[in-house]
Structure formats: C-alpha cells, structure tokens
Design a protein around this nucleic acid. Structure first.
Lengths: 180, 180
DNA sequence: CATGTGTGTGAGTGCACACTTACAAACAGG
DNA sequence: CCTGTTTGTAAGTGTGCACTCACACACATG
C-alpha cells in the first residue's frame, strides 16, 4: 500500500476544492481533480460516491477550513467586545481567502443549489459558520447579519474583479473591504 | 415569415434568463432554451453567436430589467431623501425577484466569471445598476455599498433556502429582509 | 508461499450536448 | 409567377465526460 485511503481522500478533497472553485461543478471533469491529486480518475470514483459525493465532501472541507480560520482570528481578539471580535474574524477571513479557492468554491456551491444534496451541504456549512460567529463574538443578530452581508459583497467584488476597476461606482462598492 | 428575427430574439432571451437561472450556464442545454422559446435548437444558434453569446445577451436583458424595476421603484419615492429612495428601490427589487429568475441568473453569472466575456457582462451589468442607484438616490458611497451588501445577502438567503430554516442562526441572517 | 485484503489503474462504454449543414417553406418585389 | 431574402427545421457529427470493469500490484498473516 502506497498510502491509506483516508489520506488519499484528504489530498483529493484539497484538489477538489481548488478545481471546483475555478470552474464549478458542471464544468469541472473529475479527471481534472484526479490529475491535480496525482491519481487516476477511476480511483477517485472508488474513494467518493460519484462526482456529486465528491463535491459535497469538498463543501464540508471548505467550510471546515473557514471555521478554523475564524476561530484563529477570534483568538487574536481574545475576549474583547463583539465588534472587535467580528473585526478580527473579518480580517482572518480576508487573509484566508487571499488564494480565492474558498471564496470561489462558496460561489460555485451557491450556483448548484438546485441539487438538493448540495443545497443541504451549503446550509450545513453556513449553519456551522453562522452559529460559531454568533456565539463566539456574542454579537447581536443585526451585527452577525451585517457581517455576512459584507462577506457576500466581498464575493461579488472578487468574482467580478471589481478591485481592478478604477471607476467611481466600483470604488464605492470596494471601499474599506479588506485585502482583495 | 411567421415572425421577425428581432421579436424571436426577445422571446428567446426571456426563455434563456429563466432556463439559465435554474440550472446555470454549463448544465443548461440550448435545447432546453429552444424548447422553452418554442423554436428549434438550430434556429437559436442562428439568432445568437453560440451558447456563450446567448448567455451574454441574456445577462444584458437581466440587468436591463433590474434597472427598469429600480427606476420604477425610485419613482414611487419621488424626490425624497437618499435613504427613502434607497428603501423604495429595495422594495422594488424585492418585488421584482419574487419569481427568482433575475436573482438566480445573477448568481449563475457570477459563478461563470472565469469566462472573460461573462465577467465583462457582469461588470457591465453592475456598472449600470450601481451608477443608477448612486446617482438617482444621491446616497453616499457607504450607503450604496450597504445597499449592495444586503442585496448580495439576499442572494445567499434565496439560494440556500434560508427563509425555510427556523433555526436561530437562519432567522438572524434573514431578519428584516424584505419578501423572500 | 498461499491466500486474502486494500490500493491503484488502463481501457473501455454509452450518452448528452454544442454546433453544422442541407434543405424547405413563407413572404416581398418586380 | 418568378426570383431573392428571411424564417425555420430535421438530421446529422464529433467530442467530452461520468461511470464501470477487469485486472495488477503491494502488503499482511498463517
């Protein structure tokens, strides 16, 4: 045995998050994921229950990484006030998505929510993130809502490439958004 | 001649917005658009420059309809203050996307911005909407930014079906969002 | 070393779908 | 009524891709 199946699954999931992030569910052949993971397409199908199972598992991994990053960010704020903790989480999120994979994967997953299993995975992911953000920061519902609203705005900015647009309307939308 | 090409193009674009909204660019065969429009697939290819040209044209139609709705909404607020005009636009947008087609199309388009022509169409669309919202309302950049942030949050709520989720975290995210 | 179990692949198979081509019918103008 | 133009389609063609299957190699255990 060159490797255990569990270890392979982990590397495949990393490759899957990146690949799906770039080209989305339907336009990403599992051969692309397999190649990025350095194994054959056939073995990917043995490790996961079809392309759909692979995508759902990748969604789990994506949100897992987000929660971990937010935890680390919140730790930097210690037990400061809700606003401070939220800002620390925002900074952590901005750093995390510098490579764009996690952000783009979320956008891609949102676009395929007509598949029930994917919709459920997206809900489960945001459930984890939202409950964590709320409980860890102690912020009000309205503050948590604002946190996610500007997070979603960040998704638009990145997918549309608005950081690169010098026109006033784009500057207005990107003003104060951290990092991208 | 049963119809003029220009009239056909319009009906095809309506069908295309609906079809692409539901299943996205890559998972929507142009046969589906053709069937919804009541014509043959071959004729769709004569009317538009490939599937990509059809999608880009549909994006134009989508943002066009959004701007028209916002104009009508703003008209209802007359020349009140920026905040009132923004709220009137928000209400108009909420009504407009009751059928979900325009909202879902935007999400789908965002997911396919790795295709340069689509990215440009998305930018052009938001350029129209954002400049109109800013100039018509006279609101500050920060207000306009907030308007779009909560609009994007609305996209998440609808795609993930959060209106149907009774748990507290989902209630926090959907609180005060008009309509869905 | 025989046998079993888990890891891994090459070579298909079948189907969906983007796009083309050859052809037909409706109308317009002279 | 004949000729050209526009509207429209049926029937392909080629390709990409999800998924399968038969098979091979690595390692453990008695």
């Amino acid at each position: 045995m060159r490797s255990t199946a569990e270890a392979r699954r982990a590397t495949v999931l990393n490759a899957a998050v990146s690949a799906f992030a770039r080209t989305g569910f339907h336009a990403t052949p599992v051969t692309a994921v397999a190649a990025a993971a350095g194994i054959s397409e056939a073995y990917v199908f043995r490790l996961f229950a079809g392309k759909l199972g692979l995508f759902v598992a990748a969604a789990g991994a994506c949100f897992e990484r987000i929660v971990v990053a937010l935890e680390a960010g919140a730790e930097r704020a210690g037990d400061a006030g809700p606003q401070e903790v939220l800002e620390a989480m925002g900074d952590a999120y901005a750093e995390l998505i510098a490579d764009r994979d996690l952000l783009l994967f979320q956008v891609q997953a949102q676009a395929v929510t007509d598949v029930p299993e994917i919709a459920e995975a997206v809900r489960a992911g945001y459930r984890r993130v939202a409950t964590f953000v709320g409980s860890r920061s102690g912020a009000s519902d309205a503050q948590v809502q604002q946190f996610f609203a500007y997070g979603q705005l960040c998704h638009l900015i990145v997918t549309a490439g608005l950081e690169q647009v010098p026109e006033p309307w784009a500057r207005a939308l990107t003003a104060g958004i951290r990092h991208p």
